[in-house]
Amino acid sequence: MRAYVELIRNTPLLVQLFIVFFGLPTLGIRLNANEAALVALSINLGAYSTEIIRAGIESLPRSQIEAGRALGLTALQTFRYIVLYQAVKAIYPALASQFVLLMLATSIVSAIGATELFHQAAFIESRTYRSFEVYTLITLSYLLLTVGFRGLFSLVYWAVFVRRPSR
């Protein structure tokens, strides 16, 4: 597990994508561009979120678990009612920004020609020869996505963790 996390976190997503799309067929595993992208992005996100979740759970003071057990809660109840909420709260911001980073990273999937924003641009470019304008437009449209997702994530955070739960 540790090795998987370290291997993924210390190599470029683009190379991971190339391994999946161009490398795996050597072993008889043939994926189309979209499937390869999905596999590579999932493996990548998996490694980062594993790390974030591990750090989040470790950041929770042991005394919280002990307090739960001392009140007579079972291990499962302690996890369900004490650990989970606090851990998710601690992990959420990092997980949300990792998601945004991943969304931005989808742009490189165009390198293997999956159907995604930048690939569309390459297509448009060949017809209009206005590559600069097109790429600027596409790049800025990611900004909209980023702002949108960030807003959404903070809204969810506020609704779940900031607003006092109804009494």
Partner: peptide
């Protein structure tokens, strides 16, 4: 602006711009 857009896009914008 920089953190909200993909690096690849920035590379293209500079390269073509």
């Amino acid at each position: 602006l920089i953190q909200g857009t993909p690096l690849l896009g920035q590379l293209f914008v500079f390269f073509f711009g």
